[in-house]
Design a protein around this nucleic acid. Structure first.
Lengths: 189, 189, 189, 189
DNA sequence: TATGAATGAGAATTCATTCAT
DNA sequence: GATGAATGAATTCTCATTCAT
């Protein structure tokens, strides 16, 4: 692909990212995307034969869920004896690489589009996995009660995902640090 | 309104409820709604001058958030000394009266339509309020630490709302009883 | 359907008939049809959800293949002893009720559209049947040689159908009376 | 033209031949042709400045109507006294050199494209001419009645052309040998 | 109230063709 | 010769909404 071509394609994706985040996929016409990208309408379909392909490309190319490699070295950030701090750090660094706009799209369109839903599911799994491993390592004493540990990890995951998505809709904001501390207490008790 | 008229209006709302839940508001045309309701196209606009009014009517008439009256008698279900059980009961009886389809619509369209978002916000507040009051009453000893109690209530709210909405998208399901117990431990410690 | 409505629908079909005959189905856009019919573009799709439905309606409603009822009374026009005259009359009165435009459409689009092809097949069968029965009745002596009689009927059918369709393309015109006489001679010899 | 170039051009024509025969000229986009030919889109226009030129080239280069030279030596296959056999041989060896796909195209597009129609007309004339000459030679006694002979030749031509084209559409198949015999009888009587 | 025809703006998509590299 | 990005007009089809009856 020539530089100019790459540029056009990028501009189309940029425009779509902004519009999809702002008003949603359905409400963003391909003509409007082309307009924002400053390319002719037809070019959108040159790169993306169907409108949905624009969304798929966005999710594919502009969101990345960092996967935890196997083995204990992966959880190097977990500090034994400090589960609260460990969870707080996880909250601050979700394993999701995506712009704020892409994050909105991820939640907004998950209902309707499979490829988006899959990516969101992957994010959820990854957060859960990290939370669980963090708790296992940070809080070795809790290992005996696997069920409670899983509930704790799931709870923390729910709070983080809720925060990313629903907080904007419900108006309720949660301080992840407070939740981290709460969970640490629950496991430590 | 004659019986027949009431019937037509109801059938329109029934059809819209099913369609909006299934494929979303944008993707459900008024013609299709009329078709499903088995009424002529024009009649939809007789009852609902604009398409959006159908959605507003649905949310208005078919979702109801039970509000907690002021005063301690409202929290009659809270059992002092049993915060876990109290939360579990809340989880089992969300203060939301709505069909499964309407629940889907509530989350699905919150992003795009203010009236829906408001109703969702109200549900969230109500759950939070009840969780907080339940914890206050069920766990009188915790009153000293208001911040922690709020975090606990917010966490539980997040888990319940997550469960209603995102669990279907991410595939992760959480046992509210386990979370209730977790939170009780955190406050009790 | 109100008078005005029936009128719109008729005008759409009129326009389509003229355009399809003139330049073919593919080359006649729905917008052009609407323009010729002097109705808004959208109305075409009100009556005919898909463009192909216009063609189907035309063939359905504006071509009619008269079917020969069973029994000898049907062939009342066959004159025993005058096979040539009998065939000539058949040539002059094809059992096809359709305007010249519709006849063009029938051949023109048979290649591509099943419903049209079926109608054309029906016409062919009907002509063949009539030719055969005419020969049977008009020329009782030939009954012994069924195979030859069938070949004669098929030949006459081919000539008539060729005349309707291909003559315009190849430039060759055939006098059906001469063919009728030829065939009569062949069977009479 | 380099070998590779010739190859590309040939592959484009191959692809077009298959597609035009299968779905028609209008419905076969140049992009699809390029795709089938496995050449870049732009190359089609390098060899054929307009889409129609592809069709013209196909007809020009891939159909050939063998023309009967003047003089009696041309009709060497006509056997005096055996008009039926002579016609049968003509039926079996149409003076058309073309693949089955090209034959389909010849009839399919004759309606819309002049160059195709001309080629088809030429084929028709040639068949007629050969039939006539064959009958003249094979059946010298018939010379007296020129009109009847012409009708016979035209009839046979119609049957052969019908067979090539319409038989596939109407479902009726005709045995040319039987027709040949029929015609011979008619002239012999 | 009921009905469905009418309207026209706009949606996604297709496509022949051009052209810089 | 070869390539594929670029272009924009045209196409089929959708849809909310209006309105005469």
């Amino acid at each position: 692909m020539s530089e100019r071509a790459a540029d056009s394609r990028t501009r189309i994706l940029d425009a779509a990212e902004a519009l999809f985040a702002d008003r949603g996929y359905e409400a963003s016409s391909t003509a409007r995307i082309a307009g924002h990208a400053n390319v002719p309408k037809g070019l959108v379909f040159h790169y993306f034969p169907q409108k949905i392909d624009v969304l798929v490309a966005l999710v594919d190319e502009r969101t990345f869920v960092e996967e935890l490699p196997d083995g204990p070295e992966a959880a190097v950030e977990a500090v034994p004896g400090d589960p609260a701090g460990t969870l707080s750090r996880l909250a601050r660094r979700l394993p999701l690489h995506a712009s704020p706009a892409m994050r909105r799209i991820l939640f907004r369109e998950a209902d309707t589009h499979k490829s988006v839903r899959e990516r969101l599911g992957r994010l959820n799994s990854e957060v859960f996995l990290r939370a669980r491993r963090a708790l296992e390592l940070a809080h070795p004493g809790a290992r005996g009660d696997q069920a409670r540990l899983e509930a704790a990890a799931a709870t923390f995951t729910a709070v983080l995902i809720y925060q990313e998505n629903l907080a904007g809709l419900t108006g309720q904001h949660i301080d992840p640090d407070a939740v981290a501390e709460l969970i640490a207490r629950a496991l430590g008790a």
